[in-house]
């Protein structure tokens, strides 16, 4: 396995990962220079996976309000060097061991869905390189592979149209049925889908796992309630295309910024902030959304009247919350 170490090569991430697991390797697999994600192995078992498309452990814990931002940052600063951030949070009583395990497990499978489905690309394995979170849980590569393919099949069962996975989405102006029933998670997506945000943007904004967000986007699309907003206007397009690689790069390089890179709840964060408050202000705090207070008519040119109506609808919905 040593020749897969230092030099980047072109390979399918999942194939290389299986080889590394079989060899019982310990280290970090960088996919596409890290911009498509990283997989961390300990003795051939997966201890952590990160992807720009999936909120990491830090983002999940802080965006939900479970941990205050400064609590998370302090643990990262203190524990990163010794690869013991997770253990530190438990030792200091901020998290229960079971919560940490649940969060890390969920994050591993979530990010793995995006990293393992990456087509052949530039990959590099750094032997011996450990993740700063430390050893919390371990997952067999085979289990990750099986779950990833099950999730892929599941998405297509819901709605066999993958274009909504990566495109900005927007609610349809008029529902195709007279009565609509949504789950709480679906409601949040509909309210925040503004024709510029993609599923990945929405998952980061709401602190929801990436795959679960994709699943709901497909369900809402299948129900005719959400649609592909098409190529966004130049401003929005730039944000959508540029943001993920930037974030991925910094996530890998800088543990101070949390698992998924730039800190999702940085400015003026109160430890007692509620989840709802975090969400309500979400659009205004995200650098990725450069025009939070602008008009909502930035969609496709042929849909301007719809978007104006949609803006009013969205304002009314927000007022109801």
């Amino acid at each position: 396995m040593s020749e897969t170490g230092r030099q980047p090569e072109i390979a399918q991430p999942s194939r290389l990962l299986s080889q590394l697991a079989d060899a019982g390797e310990t280290g970090t697999l960088y996919v596409d220079g890290g911009s498509s994600g990283t997989v961390h192995l300990i003795d051939g078992r997966v201890s952590c996976v990160e992807s720009p498309a999936a909120p990491g452990v830090g983002a999940l814990l802080t965006t939900s309000g479970r941990l205050a931002e400064h609590t998370w940052q302090a643990a990262v600063q203190t524990g990163a060097a010794g690869h013991r951030v997770g253990r530190l949070l438990v030792e200091q009583g901020h998290l229960m061991q079971s919560e940490l395990e649940l969060c890390v497990l969920g994050a591993i499978y979530d990010a793995a869905f995006f990293v393992l489905t990456t087509a052949a690309t530039s990959v590099r394995f750094a032997p011996g390189e450990l993740h700063w979170l430390g050893r919390v849980v371990e997952v067999e590569v085979g289990a990750l592979e099986r779950e990833t393919s099950r999730r892929g099949r599941r998405l297509d069962e819901i709605f066999p149209e993958s274009s909504v996975d990566h495109a900005p989405v927007t609610p349809v102006p008029t529902p195709p049925v007279q009565r609509v029933v949504l789950t709480a998670a679906q409601w949040e997506l509909v309210v925040h889908a503004d024709g510029r945000r993609t599923a990945a943007d929405l998952s980061r904004l709401l602190g929801r796992p990436g795959y679960a967000t994709l699943q709901e986007v497909r369900r809402l699309s299948a129900a005719g309630l959400l649609r592909n907003a098409g190529p966004p206007s130049s401003g929005g397009d730039r944000g959508a295309v540029d943001a993920p690689p930037d974030e991925g790069a910094s996530a890998v390089a800088d543990p101070d910024h949390g698992v998924t890179g730039p800190d999702p709840v940085a400015e003026g964060e109160s430890p007692t902030r509620t989840r709802a408050a975090t969400r309500r202000e979400g659009g205004h705090r995200r650098q990725r959304d450069p025009q939070p207070s602008g008009p909502n008519g930035a969609g496709p040119v042929d849909a301007v009247p719809d978007d104006a109506l949609l803006g009013r609808l969205r304002a009314a919905l927000k007022a109801l919350r």
């Binding site: 941990l67 205050a68 400064h70 609590t71 302090a74 643990a75 600063q77 203190t78 200091q92 009583g93 901020h94 998290l95 229960m96 079971s98 919560e99 649940l102 430890p271």
Partner: peptide
């Protein structure tokens, strides 16, 4: 409940 309920005496947001 035990699985996800934080202990009542756990310090909140006072790391380091």
């Amino acid at each position: 409940d035990d699985l996800v309920r934080p202990r009542p005496d756990a310090p909140v947001g006072s790391a380091a």
